[in-house]
Simulated scan of single mutants.
Amino acid sequence: MKQLYYAVTLYTALGLVSGLFYRDFTKAHNFTGKTELAITHTHLLALGTLFFLIVLALEKQFTLSAERLYGWFFWTYNVGVLWSVACMTAIGIRTVQGHSPESGLLAHMAGGGHILLTVGFVVFFICLYRPVTARQEKPAHV
């Protein structure tokens, strides 16, 4: 549970800082166009903070961390989020500085982060399956 709490706290801090960075960086460069920096804030808060708050509640209810693949879910998902957001940040900074918004390498790297996110989601649902179905299969006491 502490691990999930720390993840929620980290993603909240990163989400808030990324929003501040977006605002100040674009203002400092007199940039008014579209940039990936605009969505790093929401990616961190939604995929990080909100998602792990939900996982925290599910952990309290089902003890998901007892599942064999839980560690794989936790680390794969976190690497996927951080990798994706790091690539988005790099692409956004390049855009604000007047470079081509997407270099081939950065786009492919961002895609790799999204693949890790997908794998993390799949493993999460695998971890969730047994505890959820086990509760439904218990007979009701009369």
Rank of each mutant, 00 (worst) to 15 (best):
I126K: 10
F62L: 15
K2H: 07
G120D: 02
V81R: 00
Y11P: 02
I93K: 11
I93L: 12
V79W: 04
V17A: 11
F62Q: 09
A38K: 12
V122T: 12
G19Q: 12
Y77N: 06
V119Y: 04
T118P: 00
Q136Y: 10
T133G: 07
K2I: 11
G48L: 04
S103R: 08
S84W: 02
H43G: 02
G15L: 03
L16W: 05
G15I: 01
L14N: 00
L58W: 10
T40F: 01
L44N: 00
T12E: 11
E137W: 00
F73H: 11
F52R: 06
Y129I: 12
F125P: 00
D24N: 10
F121I: 09
P101Q: 12
F31S: 02
Q136P: 03
G104E: 10
R23P: 00
M109D: 02
H114N: 14
E36N: 05
L106H: 07
T76I: 13
P139L: 05
E59R: 11
G113K: 03
A13K: 10
T76S: 12
G15C: 09
A90C: 00
R135Y: 11
A38G: 03
L82N: 15
L4T: 02
T89G: 04
R68M: 07
T35Q: 07
I126C: 06
W83N: 03
F52T: 05
Q97Y: 05
V55E: 03
G71C: 02
G112H: 08
V119H: 06
L4V: 02
L47P: 04
L64M: 08
Y77M: 07
Y5L: 14
Q97L: 15
P131K: 00
C127D: 04
L105D: 11
A134M: 07
L14E: 00
V81K: 01
I91W: 01
K138W: 07
C87S: 14
P101K: 11
A38V: 03
F74P: 01
F73S: 05
C87M: 15
T133V: 14
T26C: 06
E59D: 14
P101F: 06
V96W: 03
I54E: 09
R68T: 10
M109I: 09
Y11R: 02
Y6R: 14
L50H: 12
E137A: 15
I54Y: 11
F62R: 05
W75I: 03
F73G: 05
I93R: 07
W72L: 15
T12F: 05
L20D: 02
M88F: 15
V119N: 08
L69K: 13
